[in-house]
């Protein structure tokens, strides 16, 4: 017998099969890379809670968002209504207090990791965020975003000044040092019910 030619396998339907698989995966999966604003909630309140430690007026910044989504900021008894776009600058001034303003948080020398050594920082500052039950989540989120943004901006500036590169590119130790320099203290009070 002579050589027999093997007939080629008809593979034209493989394309259809894999198309069906492809479409199945397109439908059942989601491409969204999840992003979000990471926050850390405080520990649960204890029953036998003592009075909260007294915070001096100059050390606290109260951000109040009412049911109409208006923002009021109180620093050292000076209250004013602001727009969301002004909040970041205001928060940065408050956290850093570069001019040692007596109405902004006191600068206390604190031992920080290298290369900072002992530096005057606003150790006792607290940003307190108060919302109403009827405040919209969007406004609340924008306020949080601006407050965290203020901290991130300050850390970034510090990293550029001290290490010569942005905060994102710092090593873990450098990031930790920057975080201790500008320690994030945002406390959230229970929302009040002014009217239902």
């Amino acid at each position: 017998m002579g050589k027999r030619k093997v007939p080629g396998l008809n593979a034209s339907s493989t394309a259809d099969i894999s198309f069906i698989l492809l479409i199945f995966f397109l439908v059942t999966t989601s491409m969204d890379t999840d992003r979000g604003l990471a926050v850390r909630l405080p520990n649960p309140p204890e029953d036998n809670q003592q009075d909260p430690p007294k915070i001096r007026e100059r050390n606290s910044m109260i951000v109040n968002v009412n049911m109409n989504n208006q923002i009021m900021v109180t620093v050292a008894k000076n209250s004013k209504e602001i727009q969301i776009s002004e909040l970041r600058e205001l928060a940065k001034q408050f956290i850093a207090n570069p001019e040692n303003d007596p109405d902004l948080p006191e600068l206390i020398p604190v031992e920080l990791p290298a290369p900072f050594g002992v530096q005057p920082i606003t150790k006792n500052h607290v940003i307190s965020l108060q919302t109403d039950r009827a405040t919209s989540y969007d406004t609340y989120f924008q306020v949080e975003n601006e407050l965290y943004g203020a901290y991130n901006d300050l850390r970034d500036e510090l990293a550029r000044k001290s290490f010569g590169h942005p905060y994102r590119e710092c090593t873990e130790d450098e990031q930790l040092a920057c975080r201790q320099y500008y320690k994030c203290v945002i406390s959230e009070a229970e929302p009040r019910k002014y009217n239902q």
Binding site: D34, V39, P42, R133, F141
Partner: peptide, 29 residues
Amino acid sequence: VDRDTQMGIVTDVKMELREAMALSVVYSA
């Protein structure tokens, strides 16, 4: 959370999360 949600329900959820010691929270955005 939907943008138009009121804070009341979000705060209730956060209080429960605190009680459950699930303190790392990410607001998806």
